[in-house]
């Protein structure tokens, strides 16, 4: 009698052959498969997210008038304050331009921002990603930085027609340069994402912290972008450094853990910063 195991032998061999063929396949057809499956699913995700927004909208329209009036008042106040800020920022910007002109320094990388709703979030140990509802058609490009206010969310890891995937700061594979608050010599340290176990707040690794650096006492040291690498504008918050620093087993520096700035796993809306000049990372991927 033919046992199931023996029956399986032929098909298993076929599957193994198929796997080998797949591995040897050039990357283009594999990319094609990946892209087409992603595009196929995108509309469903967008629809899902729109439905959720609709539900939220209905929820809001049913709110009582007192609440609406109160929030309207708050908004007006916030607006007035922000208008003042904008005015002072404009004068600062023109002053800055004038000084740069005098010193003949090139202008920093300039960005145009695209606001995007988050369609889906997913965090496991090996990745932390967002799907946002902006894609190639909106000008989003691979590797673009993604922020939330003055806080870094991550960078674009995959671009589809109308959606993109954003790799969060804590996701393995993310890396960028940073500076630490309280470091007078303003030395460059590195932030790299790492696998994060469930139920523990996500953390990124901070490496190459100079040995003579000690976090400012009594307050968390903020980790900020340097603006040197051309990816992020300078001074954005990446997160806060946890006070325990360990001595790296090799080399003359310390390593630490960083808690991300944005509530990364709950974020609902982000801004994609699209550089006006093409950056090397777009072609080096």
């Amino acid at each position: 009698m033919e046992t199931p195991l023996r029956r399986l032998r032929g098909p298993l061999a076929a599957l193994a052959a198929l796997l080998l063929a797949w591995v040897l396949l050039p990357s283009l057809p594999r990319l094609f498969v990946r892209e087409s499956f992603a595009e196929f699913q995108a509309p469903a995700l967008v629809a899902l997210s729109r439905t959720r927004e609709l539900v939220r909208h209905l929820e809001l329209t049913n709110a009582d008038r007192e609440t609406l009036a109160a929030s309207g008042r708050d908004l007006a106040r916030a607006n007035a304050a922000l208008e003042l800020r904008v005015l002072s920022l404009e004068s600062l910007a023109s002053e800055n331009r004038r000084l740069r002109g005098m010193l003949a320094t090139p202008p920093p990388a300039e960005f145009r921002s695209v606001v995007a709703r988050v369609a889906a979030r997913e965090s496991s140990t090996w990745w932390s990603r967002l799907v946002i509802r902006r894609g190639r058609e909106d000008g989003v490009r691979l590797g673009c930085p993604v922020v939330l206010g003055d806080r870094v969310v991550g960078r674009v890891a995959a671009v589809h027609l109308n959606t993109s995937e954003v790799e969060l700061v804590t996701s393995p594979g993310f890396r960028c340069s940073a500076m630490l608050d309280g470091d007078e010599r303003r030395q460059v340290v590195f932030v790299t994402g790492a696998p994060n176990p469930p139920f523990v707040g996500p953390r990124a690794d901070v490496t190459h912290i100079p040995r003579e650096y000690f976090p400012p006492a009594g307050q968390p040291a903020v980790v900020r972008t340097t603006g040197l690498g051309g990816l992020y504008p300078p001074g954005l918050r990446l997160g806060t450094l946890e006070p325990v620093l360990t001595d790296a087993p090799e080399g003359a520096w310390k390593t630490g853990k960083m808690a991300p700035a944005a509530e990364l796993r709950n974020v609902a809306e982000v801004a994609v910063l699209i550089p006006t000049q093409p950056q090397p990372y777009e072609e080096l991927r």
């Binding site: 890396r175 340097t226 040197l228 991927r285």
Partner: peptide, 15 residues
């Protein structure tokens, strides 16, 4: 100041 080169290495070059 090697900062810029390091930063560009980290941010412009995928791992």
């Amino acid at each position: 100041n090697p900062g810029e080169r390091l930063a560009r290495f980290m941010e412009q070059l995928p791992d």
